[in-house]
């Protein structure tokens, strides 16, 4: 009953605010525990398209769990908002994604959403779609600097914040004093650069922390394992470890476990289900949610709002929407998993 009231009051609020489809986007993006059924009801009341809309999506590569989850989220929210989603896989390859987006640009869409694998590699076909009046929603990674290309909006988390938030959680647990290792993603990746910057900013503010090493493992679990073989041989005392993603963290945990060094506090990024399970059972101390569902689902909502609600950049939707997720520790792990099950975050 109280839940019903809650949803009604939310709907009232949205109506009062005079926001149509964007309201449901905001509600969903808020990740406030709205069930899909409620969302469907809200979608019908606010922005669900009467005629089926055609949307094209592409993200970096479906071999990445984060991207695969994003696809599921986009399809889930697409169903609720009457959007038929066609997928163009980036295959974690700038050249292959360019070919896919070239194909995308030669067809007609109501809106498109793209996460670029490489910045600057998709400008021409994306510009072609923008010129044809198709709203292009940029997800997670810049297609090009925002002043160079007129995308509808840019939905992305702040990587620097994510790096800083998890590092802060580790540092706080250590009481501001200890030895830490950062295992980076690919150095050329803007996400990795942001996470490293966030890490460094927290370390700079805590002079008691000593960084033992910060080599990159290029998102590769085999490289992460190899590096950690060496670290555990080289450093008798390691208090904490920050990884640029959870997959590398879990791979390194195996190495630590095989040497009985499970006292190392592990922090990661992404908070995908295996990492949430690891946080819940204590293998990892913390991770931060990189909200794949919020970004991909948000792209559906933003696209529908643009097409049916006439929402324009700067009028209703800002050019840049920051979609940060929270730090996940034992305390909120279960709830975070539930929200992911329903593609809310």
């Amino acid at each position: 009953m109280s839940e019903d009231k809650h949803s009604k009051s939310r709907r009232d609020f949205i109506r009062t605010a005079g926001v149509t489809a964007a309201g449901s986007a905001a509600a969903m993006l808020g990740g406030l525990g709205i069930s899909p059924a409620m969302a469907q009801e809200m979608a019908a009341a606010t922005g669900r398209s009467e005629k089926p809309l055609k949307a094209a999506f592409s993200n970096a590569g479906l071999q990445a769990t984060w991207c695969a989850q994003g696809k599921q989220a986009a399809e889930h929210w697409g169903k609720l908002f009457n959007v038929e989603v066609t997928w163009f896989d980036g295959q974690l390859d700038a050249v292959k994604q360019r070919a896919a987006i070239d194909n995308m640009a030669s067809q007609k869409w109501d809106f498109v959403a793209i996460q670029a694998f490489g910045i600057g590699t998709l400008i021409q076909p994306v510009q072609k779609m923008i010129d044809a009046g198709i709203p292009v929603i940029d997800m997670d990674t810049l297609i090009a600097p925002l002043d160079k290309i007129n995308v509808h909006t840019f939905l992305a988390p702040n990587n620097e914040f994510m790096g800083a938030a998890v590092t802060q959680a580790l540092v706080q647990k250590l009481g501001g004093k200890g030895k830490i290792i950062m295992t980076q993603g690919a150095l050329g990746h803007t996400g990795a650069q942001g996470r490293a910057k966030g890490f460094q900013s927290v370390i700079a503010a805590n002079p008691g922390m000593e960084v033992l090493d910060d080599q990159p493992a290029d998102w590769d679990v085999t490289k992460a394992s190899r590096l950690w073989d060496t670290y555990l041989t080289k450093y008798p005392q390691i208090d904490a470890a920050f990884f640029h993603n959870d997959d590398m963290a879990l791979a390194a945990y195996n190495v630590m476990k095989s040497r009985g060094r499970t006292d190392i506090l592990i922090g990661g990024v992404d908070a995908m289900p295996p990492a949430i399970a690891a946080v819940a059972d204590g293998r990892m101390y913390a991770t931060v949610r990189n909200p794949s569902s919020r970004i991909h689902g948000g792209a559906i909502v933003a696209g529908v709002a643009a097409v049916t609600g006439g929402e324009k950049t700067g009028e209703g939707i800002p050019k840049n929407v920051v979609t940060d997720g929270p730090v996940v520790t034992k305390d909120n792990a279960a709830g975070m998993q539930w929200m992911q099950n329903h593609f809310l975050i």
Partner: peptide, 17 residues
């Protein structure tokens, strides 16, 4: 044995090999 050693089976895991 590689999958057992690294603790996970995922796409492109052994590409570098």
């Amino acid at each position: 044995v590689g999958v057992a050693h690294f603790g996970s089976a995922q796409q492109n895991e052994f590409d570098g090999y």
